[in-house]
Design a protein around this nucleic acid. Structure first.
Length: 596
RNA sequence: GGGGCGGUAGCUCAGCUGGUCAGAGCAUCGGACUCAUAAUCCGUGGGUCGUGGGUUCAAGUCCCACCCGCCCUACCA
């Protein structure tokens, strides 16, 4: 094992145009938190950052629809999302937003660095704008008749009927999906990121990741290299980060493209975190230390931005593309060590769709079920390596069978017996072969389970921890401590062994189940905090506005290691850890989904 | 159109660079037990590993073709 490392956990930024649903958090939220909690327990220095992504056309469109300003809309959903992610127990060191002055400053610094090195240049292009607002009309917001197959619901970027990629200029009878008006195609000047200049650098960067990244991510990224085009990183819109060049800075009709500013959020959030921690340069440990690792968590539709565009931006800022150059004033910045992408979650066989009520928002879910139950389900049955279907039936089965019947019951029966008979953690006497075997297999599980967690293979990790649970239940069935009233010494030894294994497994499940693991820690007499939980804090910014952030003190007692339990520690009769769900909730939830 | 993923027991899925790889969990059925949220434990059945070829001493595991499902295609994780 290596020494303590600096690990940046960069979590995809949820878009603040509405509340997030469980598909979103299964992609970026739960995986990144399980990973980060494990890394902290393993003794590494984790910096986990994210925030709400608040610029761009969809937010402006939604705000117009609701008759509020983009900022008001973003304020609203920033708070909703921050509250939901906190309730899920996601241990962000800083969860901020893209509308801070700090973020604007960092984004503009990166832009200038790219510009000074020659990787960003202006170009006049043809683009669609809305005649009534003058704003860029993204291709997806234009529909019309497909010039190839005649399908009349084709979008500007692609025809859903024949599958061909289109240019919106070619659409017959194009219309805006926002308000039905006919878009105007005009010449407009935009700044382009010179992606072809990074073809070689990106190629060698990605090649070096062979065997390390999930194969689908790497294949996808390598594939993109074949056709790199300069890409516009500005838009005709007033809701975004201003372009920091003379003659552009004060224009209200040109802003940086939302994705360009969003990925830079990982850096700006790190900078903000450092400043709030009292050491403004602390972020450098995660970005400029050659031994630091950066893990980026997201859903698969984000791969292009994290495996292609973000590395290109960093290379350009560092002056490491085909045009060379030198690092900007922040200094050389590290590229992602690994891009961890989840696949997609579907809902009862269908795509998530808020308009069709095929959705369950995080908030609604957590109003009826525990965060640990959702975290567990996503970790063991989520879209880790392929698209996965969420069904209420499966959720109830796994909750009742695995969390309640296997794990919760082991905890409950062990502590209950020990509390009832001895009122304390029992002494251990001579060990039998069976005792030793169980203790050894429990202790031996730390290494493989940890290794799987470090590789973001959460299903394997959880299932190996559950194997220990099954071993322990079998052990109790074989040893039958409840029959040994006449042999208290032996009875004590058995219960001691059982409790020790409960403690071990509690440790191994902590990344998945922080809340219930904290309870078990307390039940077994643990002092202080086992694993920290996030909280919302209201903060301000010099010259800016107040806003909520998620942060927390995660330096609890939790360590990724076997911890001997102490005989004599008082035990109280336990209460169940996980509520068993009535199978009727399946029907209730399906009915809630609008007729199922 | 281009790219990617998947098709293994009733269900959900493991099976990395080819040789105990035909598995796990759940569900079913039979039995045991009672400490525990009627939880637990033991046993049982069940698959020509999508289809057709090929390479090999040996193929879910590699190659080709095909069928089916899904996803991405750059402003819905």
């Amino acid at each position: 094992m290596s020494q303590s490392q600096h690990i940046l956990t960069a979590v995809a930024w949820p878009y603040a145009n509405g509340p997030r649903h469980i598909g979103h958090v299964s992609g970026f939220g739960v995986p990144s938190d399980v990973f980060s909690r494990y890394q902290r327990m393993a003794g590494n220095k984790v910096l986990m950052v994210s925030g709400t992504d608040e610029h761009g056309t969809p937010i402006q469109v939604q705000a117009d629809k609701e008759g509020v300003s983009a900022r008001e809309l973003a304020d609203r959903y920033n708070r909703v999302i921050a509250e939901d992610l906190t309730a899920l127990g996601l241990s962000y060191d800083l969860f901020t937003r893209t509308t801070t002055l700090n973020h604007y400053a960092v984004v503009q610094e990166i832009f200038k660095g790219l510009y000074d090195n020659g990787y960003v240049f202006p170009r006049t292009t043809m683009g669609a704008i809305s005649p009534s607002t003058g704003r860029t009309l993204p291709d997806r917001y234009i529909e019309g008749t497909c010039p190839i197959c005649g399908y009349d619901g084709a979008r500007g970027d692609q025809c859903d009927d024949c599958g061909n990629q289109l240019d919106p200029v070619d659409l017959i009878n194009p219309k805006s999906r926002i308000n039905g008006e006919t878009p105007k195609f005009v010449e407009t000047e935009h700044f382009m990121l010179d992606l072809p200049a990074f073809a070689d650098a990106l190629g060698s960067y990605l090649q070096a990741k062979q065997g390390e990244w999930r194969p689908n991510v790497l294949k996808f990224a390598l594939n993109l290299l074949g056709d790199l085009q300069p890409r516009a990183i500005s838009r005709d819109l007033d809701w975004g980060v201003p372009i920091p060049l003379d003659g552009w800075r004060d224009r209200h009709d040109k802003r940086l493209y939302v994705w360009f500013d969003a990925v830079i959020g990982y850096l700006s959030a790190s900078v903000e975190w450092a400043r709030r921690s009292g050491d403004p340069d602390a972020w450098r440990q995660w970005w400029q230390n050659p031994d630091a690792q950066g893990y980026y968590f997201m859903g698969k539709d984000n791969i292009v931005f994290h495996a292609e565009i973000w590395p290109a931006i960093l290379l350009g800022y560092n002056g490491e593309g085909a045009r060379d150059g030198k690092p900007g004033s922040l200094g050389r910045l590290g590229l992602p060590s690994e891009v961890v992408s989840s696949e997609f979650l579907t809902m009862e066989g269908r795509k998530f769709s808020s308009s069709r009520q095929v959705v369950i928002y995080v908030r609604d879910f957590l109003s009826r079920y525990d965060a640990d139950a959702l975290r567990y389900y996503i970790a063991v049955a989520g879209p880790e390596s392929q698209d996965t279907d969420f069904t209420w039936n499966d959720f109830v089965n796994r909750n009742n069978g695995e969390l309640v019947a296997a794990w919760g019951n082991l905890v409950n029966r062990s502590i209950s017996m020990a509390a009832k008979n001895f009122g304390a953690v029992p002494q251990v006497g001579d060990l039998t072969d069976a005792d030793r075997a169980l203790l050894a297999s429990s202790k031996a599980a730390f290494a493989p389970v940890g290794a799987e967690l470090a590789r973001s293979r959460f299903k394997n990790a959880a299932s190996q921890a559950l194997d220990v649970v099954r071993d322990a239940n079998r052990y109790l069935a074989e040893q039958e401590p409840w029959k040994l009233k006449g042999d208290p010494a032996r009875q004590q030894s058995i219960l001691h062994v059982a409790l020790q294994v409960v403690d071990d497994v509690k440790t191994m499940l902590t990344p998945f189940l922080p809340t219930s693991s904290n309870k078990i820690y307390g039940m077994l007499g643990g002092e202080g905090v086992w694993t920290g939980m996030p909280e919302i804090r209201e903060v301000g910014e010099e010259g800016g506005r107040d806003y909520p952030i998620i942060t927390g003190d995660y330096a609890g007692a939790a360590r990724w290691e076997h911890r001997p339990i102490a005989p004599g520690t008082p035990l109280a009769p336990p209460s169940p850890l996980f509520p068993k769900l009535d199978p009727k909730v399946v029907d209730d939830e399906l009915a809630r989904m609008g007729g199922g």
